[in-house]
Design a binder for these strands. Structure first.
Lengths: 146, 146
DNA sequence: CCTTGACCTTCCCATGATTGGAAGGCCTAT
DNA sequence: ATAGGCCTTCCAATCATGGGAAGGTCAAGG
């Protein structure tokens, strides 16, 4: 299977397959006499693994760790779980940050008439030194506050 | 006021002030005879505006629009409000995507023993073609789910 | 007056993941 | 044999930010 077919079968673009190979995330593919990369179904499976992990928001660096565990048949599932939960933590932190932004923006937008007049508390907040930074309140799971 | 003081007063690093000037987000600063950039309190206020908008997650491109409205004394507050609510939309969409990831990861992690044994449904999911993609519900607001 | 240290200037490079394109080689079907 | 669709490598751009080098400037103190 050449790189185009592997791309279609795995959902990873040919460009990215070469990039992953170049950066060492995946091993170098075999080559035909003409220099074309060839892929086995096992390698396509690995590419799908990478794709799926990306879809779950894992950084490529973490995916390298996941792949190492995947290949290690004497791995401890605790290590895998730890990576997954660390990822959850990171996602939740970013979600919280964005929720704070949403809360602030909605608060400001609520006070804005949204008509033809120029007066606008949103701009007033942005320009002033007394900004309304809404903290994220006691909502949520209470996880990972630090 | 030179760039270092302006940076301290606005919360925008000197590096970023030069970058914003170079990319046209902010106008070119005045210069001393020796070539040092100088900043007035008005310009520092503009930098604070930019800083605050970044804190609310606005892309620099949007901030350019916000600054244009800020400067336009015959603006319509509706335009400002529209930008703010569009930003809320964008944030909510990204939050929803990440919440989907969290839900999937937690689902998978929940099924993982997390002990010394190698068996792990997380890896099984990543490698398989039958992935458990938890969808976010029927296109609601994405609220009230976790 | 000269040195020192803290500032400033421009220029280049790196990040992370991804995409785009150019120039050239290969393969297959007509 | 030629067309077109693949493939190869290399180079550049994205977005916002930081790091650092090489060199000029300024203020304080000896």
């Amino acid at each position: 299977m050449n790189i185009g077919e592997a791309a279609k079968a795995s959902g990873v673009s040919a460009k990215m397959i070469r990039y992953y190979e170049q950066t060492g995330l995946i091993p170098e593919a075999g080559r035909t006499a003409a220099g074309y990369r060839t892929y086995t179904t096992t390698e396509v499976q690995m590419l799908r693994f990478v794709r799926r992990a990306r879809d779950l928001g894992f950084a490529v660096e973490r995916i390298a760790e996941l792949l190492a565990l995947w290949r290690d048949r004497s791995r401890h599932s605790a290590d895998v779980k730890h990576l997954a939960l660390a990822q959850v933590e990171g996602l939740r932190r970013r979600i919280r940050e964005m929720e704070d932004m949403v809360a602030t923006l909605e608060h400001l937008a609520h006070g804005c008439n949204g008509d033809h007049r120029p007066d606008c508390p949103i701009l007033a907040d942005l320009e002033g030194e007394t900004s309304v930074v809404l903290p994220h309140g006691p909502t949520g799971t209470g996880f990972g506050r630090h």
